[in-house]
Nucleic acid binder design. Sequence first.
DNA 1: TTGAAAGCGTTACCAT
DNA 2: ATGGTAACGCTTTCAA
Lengths: 335, 335
Amino acid sequence: MAVSIKDIARVANVSYSTVSRALNDNPRVQAQTKARIQRIASEMGYLPSAVGRSLVTRRTRTIGIVVSTITDLFYAEVIDAIEETGFNHGYAVFLANSGGVPQRELAAIRALRERWVDGLIVVSCCSSKEELCAERVIDIPVVVINNAHRDHIGYSIEVDNVAGGQAATRHLLQLGHRRISHIVGPTTEWDAVERHSGYKQAMQAYGLTVDPALIVRGNSRPKGGIEAMKRLLALPAPPTAVFCYNDATALGAVRAARDAGLRIPQDLSVVGFDDIDLASYLEPPLTTVAQPRRAMGERAVEMILALLAGGPSVADCMLPGKLVVRGSTAALGQS
Amino acid sequence: MAVSIKDIARVANVSYSTVSRALNDNPRVQAQTKARIQRIASEMGYLPSAVGRSLVTRRTRTIGIVVSTITDLFYAEVIDAIEETGFNHGYAVFLANSGGVPQRELAAIRALRERWVDGLIVVSCCSSKEELCAERVIDIPVVVINNAHRDHIGYSIEVDNVAGGQAATRHLLQLGHRRISHIVGPTTEWDAVERHSGYKQAMQAYGLTVDPALIVRGNSRPKGGIEAMKRLLALPAPPTAVFCYNDATALGAVRAARDAGLRIPQDLSVVGFDDIDLASYLEPPLTTVAQPRRAMGERAVEMILALLAGGPSVADCMLPGKLVVRGSTAALGQS
DNA sequence: TTGAAAGCGTTACCAT
DNA sequence: ATGGTAACGCTTTCAA
């Protein structure tokens, strides 16, 4: 049986309120007594119970994270940053995977709320505002990173997907490409819609009309990239460049193009999105739009903490992406 | 203010013990009353408090995970499996990163124990047994996945690293290679020692003595693989094949070899370890030793649950790795 | 400076 | 079948 403040009180021959004060370094207890109690507590191997404390303070110093999957290289680092920032502020984090399934996401949120998390960070939120309201999520601070839809829930942190899509596409245009494909992400994801929109805007800015045949669907994973690329290569006039929803998709696109005998970037330029750690180690190193993953995680925690502190001025936050040019893109016709 | 069983009791005009029973589907309450109470609870938006419950049951239905970093592709999937398995059994998981720093790992464990986690899963444990005992971790169920050292703490789950190292090396030997390098992982990691040992055993089984110059150190990340490969290529007699501590190292090795003008696998065969998701999408697809990552996570949770249930027969568990032959290895002299 | 006691939300035991 | 109450570990008033 674990030792509690009552046990310490008995040994130290003081009331347990005094023990509580001493352990919390409350000034209203004699320095000498305080030191003695702390020594005894340490000797007895006392470990405070967050459960007991939470029941009275109504705070758990705990943050819940719900994410579609941490096996996505992009999310992993966001979560790593959340955990680190939280830990530095004395917060522990719960992790729950939704698998992108709203029902599972809601069940996870419910489980976290039963455990009285002080705040909730939902990465790639997939449930609707209605569903979330029914879960009464809103009565605790909520920050949504990369919201999958347009409902405004809690506070949001996103990368500027439109600008990122524009930058990627413009880069290809500047290299002389005109038949530029876009492998779209799951249209259930709002960021996919936005990147697509950025692509279209960049094309239009160059006075180009987009051939609908050049727009194909991926699934955000390599397999989807392979399938999409195969369809593009079967076209009468295949693209000379392709902007992919994300790096994982790009990986698949590169593989399919290679299998068809194309060289990257001489025969086909490829741009991704995310800048996963491995991107620079691929062959060729992948040109991509980097997301400020750690910053996103840090900001999310800071926003939660500000909200908990009753912060007056918490606002949604849109961070810029950054085009990173590597070896998978080259000027048109440079064989 | 959240609604509690007392609020429900007031509305339902029963004692709150009855409410508790009704909500827990206790048979000792009239079916009619039960239904009425449950309806009222639902209408009032009642959410049970795990904090209150834990205080009396002394269980939190919570598992703590401590891992060096989830940005390692290998760990991410192990954790994904832990979370999924835990969730299916009604357990939520805390996630803490140690960064491979013992002091941080211990601080994380302490934070989790304060929160009364029912069990602890340490992935790639880096603190010593003494340190862990001082944290009194052992009075809750502990499972260590891929222990970094040889101390026996709690129960362990590992892949058979020796056999994996042997399989990788034997594969290269069977392809006719004789000058086979090994890029070792951090020697602080026990699995690195074991894989190295497997390598040596396989070489000896073929009657070969290992040239010490062919053994170089990596750091388990691509950068380390690059540096190591550069040193190998500068050798008077460079290797024709290299077995890398893990896939990330292999990625770096491949890059360095390519940059030096070598073709993979014609000029150099490369084998990794882990079988990260991307391995099959690399160019060329990476030959590697697959670890049963999901199984490791599932087993860890099952062991914790068995221990919590007072299970009689919980035992350490060693899972086999599996050589996956892809395009990064080829027979010697097949240019 | 210290003690006594209430109370957080829940379960579980003992009565009725 | 239901009610009353103690207990879990802690913080926080209110008294002394």
